[in-house]
Simulated scan of single mutants.
Amino acid sequence: MMTNLFSVFDPTSSIINAPLNWAASAISVLILPCMFWMVPSRYQACWYKITKTLHNEFKTLLGEGGKSGSTLMFISLFSLIVFINFMGLFPYIFTSSSHLVFTLTLALPLWMSYMAYGWVNHTQHMLAHLVPQGTPPLLMPFMVCIETISNMIRPGTLAVRLAANMIAGHLLLTLLGNTGPSLTQSMMMLLITAQIALLMLEAAVAIIQSYVFAVLATLYSSEVN
């Protein structure tokens, strides 16, 4: 008997104590490369347009102070998250991005590297960010505390935002699916229609949350330059 509603998302499959659920996150290594195609396929052309658009947008967000090649890192981050999100929509495949273990592994090293680079190379610029322009002198100590706290919780908000949005839709799909055996035939058709609509919504959320994660990571990077 299930003791916790969220236990349906726990990894359970294993061989010799090696969890197989996380293996879905590495399948992109076998699927995404298309270097052996003689003529670019439609998939390659579509993906090229997507990455080109993301490159132009990330380059604008980074500004003139952005390092050359920085957009490649954020495009790769977007590609990884969106692929894992879509893999989680298939039946019996573990959604890695619905767990804080995965999302914090992405967000925390990024934030720590930004902070280390900013405080070592642009100390005055980082200190200036703690006091917004036009702040009255009386409120400056409070603004420093507020800005420091908001800066410290950035990796947590990045990780929780992605995990919460991914687990919410999957949880709703699971709850609706569990009610199927007790429904009549007419209600079953209505349930299937609702499940398909929710699945389409989850596909949109998978793309949007990947984009939001990559854009926020880019914005945080632009602040330390």
Results as ranks from 00 to 15, higher is better:
108 L>Q: 09
172 L>T: 11
99 H>E: 10
64 E>A: 10
69 G>T: 02
109 P>H: 05
53 T>H: 09
100 L>Q: 07
30 L>T: 09
221 S>G: 03
86 F>Y: 14
67 K>A: 02
17 N>P: 02
95 T>L: 07
39 V>K: 08
92 Y>L: 08
79 S>W: 05
216 L>W: 08
19 P>F: 03
4 N>I: 00
195 Q>K: 02
220 Y>M: 11
163 A>S: 13
19 P>M: 01
106 L>T: 04
125 H>A: 12
171 L>V: 01
153 I>V: 15
38 M>P: 12
194 A>V: 06
80 L>E: 12
122 H>A: 04
170 H>R: 15
99 H>D: 12
99 H>T: 08
172 L>Y: 08
69 G>E: 01
30 L>K: 11
176 L>T: 03
129 H>C: 00
189 M>W: 03
114 Y>T: 06
53 T>C: 11
222 S>C: 09
218 T>N: 04
202 E>D: 11
128 A>T: 13
69 G>R: 04
146 I>K: 09
64 E>Y: 01
177 G>L: 02
108 L>T: 12
98 S>R: 04
214 A>I: 03
120 V>E: 14
175 L>E: 03
71 T>R: 00
44 Q>V: 14
83 F>C: 07
206 A>V: 00
10 D>L: 10
125 H>W: 07
95 T>A: 04
65 G>T: 06
109 P>S: 05
1 M>S: 12
45 A>R: 15
47 W>R: 09
177 G>P: 00
202 E>P: 00
122 H>D: 05
216 L>D: 04
216 L>I: 10
204 A>C: 11
114 Y>V: 04
177 G>V: 02
94 F>T: 05
48 Y>C: 06
23 A>C: 11
68 S>D: 11
89 L>I: 03
184 T>C: 03
125 H>E: 13
3 T>P: 01
218 T>W: 01
29 V>D: 05
55 H>S: 12
47 W>P: 00
16 I>M: 03
182 S>N: 13
15 I>Q: 13
13 S>Y: 02
158 L>E: 11
169 G>Q: 14
124 Q>G: 05
68 S>K: 10
87 M>E: 15
169 G>F: 12
122 H>M: 00
61 L>E: 08
100 L>P: 04
128 A>E: 15
119 W>S: 02
42 R>G: 01
212 V>S: 02
162 L>E: 07
111 W>H: 15
32 L>A: 12
204 A>F: 12
82 V>S: 05
27 I>T: 14
1 M>F: 08
110 L>I: 14
109 P>N: 05
149 I>V: 15
155 P>N: 13
57 E>S: 06
74 F>D: 04
124 Q>W: 00
181 P>V: 07
164 A>M: 15
83 F>K: 01
27 I>P: 01
120 V>F: 14
35 M>G: 05
6 F>W: 15
51 T>S: 08
145 C>N: 01
191 L>P: 07
138 L>W: 10
190 L>S: 11
219 L>N: 04
39 V>S: 01
117 Y>Q: 10
64 E>G: 05
107 A>H: 09
194 A>P: 01
128 A>G: 06
112 M>F: 06
116 A>D: 02
25 S>A: 13
82 V>Y: 02
161 R>A: 07
45 A>W: 06
216 L>S: 02
60 T>K: 13
208 I>T: 13
56 N>A: 15
177 G>R: 04
194 A>N: 04
123 T>H: 05
43 Y>W: 10
104 L>F: 13
72 L>G: 04
100 L>G: 09
115 M>I: 13
217 A>Y: 00
77 L>A: 08
47 W>I: 03
72 L>E: 07
